[in-house]
């Protein structure tokens, strides 16, 4: 082959490689893994805050044993489950979301109960914990949104041509299950918490 042809050929080959998904599919898979790790990380952060929160609330609102027990139990279940991106399937995803969703609910019930205790609400320690909890809930929202975007990017690559052809020839990845808002959360969004006196 004449040497003058080698360079253009390499260039064409190179441009084919960059556009075909040979690189972008694994890269996007790594991005999904990283986003999933961040979701796990932020949920764990929330779980870590809860023992302290329960302890402080107990000091002022010992009568609310039921609500506190619910929070502790939901926390125990939630810490058992994580998203494992290497074997993501819809069932696993659903289990994770259900566990975290019921913890979210238990926590919001606790925050409604707390309204009855002005001394507790004035406690600086409690206020700090509440600020940290709010911050962490926001981090969870952000991490989830980034995870959803990463999964969407990945699913686009494996389903939309031309990269989907590369996927079916080389990588054979399945579409990843997208994050769904769990039924419990949906209910929480639709019905405002009841305050009884």
């Amino acid at each position: 082959m004449p040497r003058s042809l080698l360079l253009p050929l390499l260039l064409v080959l190179g441009s084919l490689l960059t556009g075909c998904g040979c690189q972008s599919i694994p890269q996007q898979k790594n991005a999904v893994d990283a986003a999933a790790a961040e979701v796990n990380n932020q949920y764990k952060r929330r779980a870590d805050l809860i023992p302290n929160l329960v302890e402080v609330v107990k000091g002022y609102a010992a009568h609310e044993q039921d609500t506190l027990t619910q929070v502790t139990e939901a926390r125990a279940k939630a810490t058992d489950t994580t998203i494992d991106p290497s074997k993501l399937d819809p069932a696993q995803m659903e289990k994770f979301q259900a566990a975290q969703g019921s913890l979210t609910q238990a926590l919001s019930r606790l925050m409604v109960v707390v309204e009855k205790y002005p001394d507790l609400k004035a406690d600086q320690n409690f206020r700090d914990l509440q600020a940290q909890l709010e911050g962490t809930e926001n981090r969870i929202t952000v991490a989830r949104q980034r995870y959803i975007e990463a999964v969407k990017g990945f699913n686009d690559l494996v389903t939309v041509p031309p990269t989907s052809w590369t996927n079916s020839l080389v990588y054979k990845h399945e579409k990843m299950p997208q994050w769904q808002v769990s039924p419990e959360e949906q209910k929480a969004i639709e019905t405002a918490p009841k305050v009884t006196f």
């Binding site: 206020r127 914990l129 911050g135 962490t136």
Partner: peptide
């Protein structure tokens, strides 16, 4: 600057 610090600065 933790969340609690930030909240205190705001409040």
């Amino acid at each position: 600057l933790t969340d609690a610090h930030a909240k205190r600065i705001i409040d």
